[in-house]
Structure formats: C-alpha cells, structure tokens
Simulated assay, not measured.
Amino acid sequence: MIRPGPVTVVERAAHAPAEAQREAFDRLAHEFTDARCAASDGLLVTDPEVRTTRLRWLGHRPG
C-alpha cells in the first residue's frame, strides 16, 4: 500500500472546506430570494421594541 505524502494530505485537507462551501451554496442558491435575504438582513437591525437586534434577542432565554 502506498500512502500519500504529507504535502498531498495537507493540500487535500485545505481544499475540502472550500469545496464544501461551494457545494452548499450551489444546493441552496435557489432558496435565497430577495424577500428571504431582506428578512435575514432585518435580524441584524436594532429593533426599538426589544432594544437589541432580533438575532441577539432570539438567542436569549425567556424570563
């Protein structure tokens, strides 16, 4: 059995996350409608009603 050298292993390991990100985007791109993008962006805007962003507010436990 011939094993790959350390450089080959490192190159393949470094390439894997970029490929995974590209694959995830390709599979989900059709879900990113203008309305969904706007709703997601809205989670980052400070809401005066809760005095923080909705994203931070959603991460807190009630009470």
Rank of each mutant, 00 (worst) to 15 (best):
V7E: 09
T46E: 14
L44E: 07
A20T: 10
E23I: 01
Q21F: 01
E11L: 08
F25H: 09
A24C: 08
A16G: 03
R54H: 08
D34H: 02
D34Y: 04
V7N: 07
V10A: 10
G42D: 02
T46F: 11
A35C: 12
R3E: 14
A35M: 13
P17E: 05
H60L: 03
M1C: 10
H15S: 06
R3A: 11
R36N: 13
R27Y: 00
D41F: 02
R27F: 00
R22S: 01
A24W: 00
E23C: 04
W57I: 00
R12A: 15
T46I: 13
R3W: 12
R51N: 04
D34N: 06
P4I: 10
A20G: 12
T52N: 11
P62N: 07
R22G: 00
R27C: 01
R51T: 05
C37V: 15
R54C: 05
V9M: 05
S40V: 08
T46V: 13
G42Y: 01
Q21R: 15
R22F: 00
D41E: 06
R61A: 12
P4Y: 09
T53N: 13
L55A: 07
L55W: 03
E49P: 11
A14V: 09
W57M: 05
R61M: 10
R12G: 15
D47E: 05
A38Q: 14
P17C: 08
L28D: 01
R27K: 14
D47K: 02
A38S: 15
R36Y: 05
P6A: 05
F25W: 02
A16C: 04
L43Y: 09
R56D: 03
A35W: 08
P6Q: 13
I2C: 08
V7Y: 15
R27T: 00
E31I: 00
Q21N: 12
R12H: 14
P4E: 05
A18T: 09
R27D: 00
T52C: 12
E23T: 02
R12S: 14
R3T: 15
